[in-house]
Amino acid sequence: MNQTNKNTEQPYAIEMINLNKWYGDFHVLKDINLKVKHGERIVICGPSGSGKSTVIRCINHLEEHQQGQIMVNGKEITGDIKQLEQLRTDVGMCFQHFNLFPHLSILDNLTLAPIWVRKIPKAEAEATAMKYLKRVKIPDQANKYPGQLSGGQQQRVAIARSLCMNPKIMLFDEPTSALDPEMISEVLDVMIELANEGGMTMVCVTHEMGFAKQVADRVIFMDAGQIIEENTPTEFFDNPQSERTQLFLSQIIAH
C-alpha cells in the first residue's frame, strides 16, 4: 500500500529514456524517448515492422531492452524476478490473438491469476470475474470455453482477464487486427468505455483511427524503430508534420 502512494507521487506512469533494442543485428528500437502521464491514453501507430509492438512489449518486460531505461511508476525495470511479478500485476496486456487459455473455462481464465498470484479466495475471485464479465457484456458465457466464443467475445474476455488483476496500466497490442469487421466495434466500445472511466493509463497499438480521435490524449507515429511524430489526435490527423506521416495517413485513408 505504501508503494502505491509513493508511485502516485511520480509524475509519469511510464518513462522511456534512450531505449535501444536489437534482434540479433537488426536494430529494432532506436533511441526511444517517451513519457506517459498517469491516466493518459496513448495511441501508437505506424507501418508494420516499425517496432510499435516491441515498444509496448518492453513495458511489461516480455521483451528485454539492451540500452536505455524504462521506468514504470517510477521504478526501473531490471528483469529482477520478484520485481517482475509486481510489475506484471500492475500492467495488464491484451494481445492481437487474445491468447486465452483454451483448456480453462472463461471464468477460470479470469480467476487463474487472482487465485495463484494475488492469493484471493476463489469465491471472491469469481465474484470479481463476474463483475468484469458484466462490464464487457458477456456474463452469460462464464462457463463456456474460449473455443466456443467468437473472436470479439474472446478479446473482451481477454480485456476482462487483465482487469481482474486491477492493473494501473493497460497495454493493447493491436487488439482488433485479428477480428472480423463486424466484431471490431464491440471490442472498441469496451475499450472506449474503459478509457472514459478515467484513471487507467492506456497505451494502445492500433490502426483504428476513429478510436484514436475519440479517446486518445496523444497519438504517436513510429517508423523504422523511431518515434517520428507525436501530437494530439486532431493535430496529428489534420496537420501531420512529417512526410512519412502524411504518406502513412494517406494510405490508411485511401482504403
Partner: peptide, 21 residues
C-alpha cells in the same frame, strides 16, 4: 508461445506458467 506470454503478463511466474498453462 502466446500462451506463455499471456500467462506471464497476468503475473504468473515461470513455474506456474509451465504447470498451470
Amino acid at each position: 508461445h502466446g500462451q506463455t506470454e499471456a500467462a506471464l503478463s497476468v503475473g504468473l511466474n515461470r513455474s506456474q506458467t509451465l504447470r498451470l498453462v
